[in-house]
């Protein structure tokens, strides 16, 4: 299984990097840019698990280490690994 995980800041938490990128895009003339959010993307390859098992394990990994749930939320998809 391949887990593709996105970790982003929760709504209402100041995303200072997103803000800086937002300003930079506006400065470059992309005035249509309304908001930018930066986050992390991770790929975690898992062996020997069914999709159901993998889901539980990935949630555990996110809660324990990959996201700091005080400020970050996570979402992921699972697909068969190549």
């Amino acid at each position: 299984m391949l887990a593709k995980i996105h970790v982003t800041l929760k709504n209402g938490v100041l995303d200072s990097q997103g803000k800086a990128v937002h300003h930079a895009l506006n400065d470059l003339g992309y005035s249509e840019v309304q908001d930018v959010h930066l986050g992390k993307y991770m790929e975690v390859k898992l062996k020997g698990l069914s999709k159901e098992e993998a889901e539980g394990r990935v949630i555990e990994m996110c809660e324990k280490l990959l996201a700091n749930t005080v400020i970050e939320s996570y979402r992921f998809t699972l697909e068969p690994a190549e």
Partner: peptide
């Protein structure tokens, strides 16, 4: 991070 203290330390506001 270990939960011994509450809260979190984020990127400085000025980056």
């Amino acid at each position: 991070e270990s939960g011994l203290l509450p809260g979190v330390l984020m990127d400085n506001a000025g980056q």
